[in-house]
Design a protein around this nucleic acid. Structure first.
Length: 219
DNA sequence: ATCCAGGCCC
DNA sequence: GGGCCCGGAT
């Protein structure tokens, strides 16, 4: 996939949808919590969970670190997979307090490579969650790949069927200037396209990528 | 009633 | 591949 195509897709999406104002979250900590809660879950349900935490004044590292895991699970229930996700939030918080004194600034002070390694090491935080935290919470130049990204590129045969996460990430990062605001907007635009057109059942009619050069029948 | 979510671990 | 899970859309 050429640099040209990567930039063409961005231009088409931006012209159609305009700025997406991501991430929907006020602080780095809220963004991190949202990134974990939104795993395989629509944002509407995640918002309810985050509102529950806010309502109870629990949306700080210290409060959540001390909170009983069963109570945490109950509060985040609307986000789905609530037992699994309560454990994942705890894994993150435990690591944050054991190795970084509970201080997000110490975590974000790591080099981008070390930060990724650190986050990936935590059980329950995989590549997409890691990169969402890097980019959206800490403004690091890391391109976020998600299911929509793979689906969109796959349907246009711009990547191989079995292309892995790192392959796709590298593809974007090598085709674009290393600018967090650009990565931010691009990923958000791909999600927008995925929600509006490139759904599991594709709606190609009127899609901004409908006449993309490599376009063929959808997968 | 069924489908599907901005994944990840086993 | 299977399991984890809620709530809005169809």
């Amino acid at each position: 996939m050429s640099r040209q195509v990567v930039q063409d897709i961005y231009d088409r999406l931006y012209r159609r949808f305009g700025p997406q104002h991501w991430w929907p979250g006020d602080t780095p900590f809220e963004i991190i919590i949202g990134a974990i809660l939104t795993q395989n879950t629509n944002w509407g349900n995640v918002k309810k969970a985050i509102d529950n935490l806010k309502k109870n004044n629990l949306l700080t590292p210290e409060k959540l670190y001390r909170l009983d895991i069963a109570q945490l699970a109950e509060l985040i229930r609307p986000a789905g997979y609530y037992n699994i996700k309560a454990g994942r939030l705890k894994s993150f918080l435990n690591r944050l307090f054991e190795n970084f004194d509970g201080d997000l600034d110490r975590l974000s002070g790591l080099s981008t490579d070390l930060l990724r390694e650190e986050l990936l090491f935590i059980k329950g935080i995989g590549p997409e969650t890691t990169d969402s935290i890097c980019l959206y919470a800490f403004n690091k130049p890391v391109f976020v790949v998600d299911a929509y990204t793979g689906r969109i590129l796959g349907r246009h045969r711009l990547i191989e069927p079995g292309a892995g996460y790192e392959e796709i990430r590298t593809l974007f990062e090598s085709a674009l200037p290393k600018e967090p605001p650009l990565y931010n907007e691009y990923h958000a635009l791909l999600v927008r396209l995925g929600k509006d057109f490139c759904k599991t059942k594709p709606q190609c009619k009127g899609c901004p990528l409908e006449d993309l050069p490599h376009d063929i029948e959808p997968v």
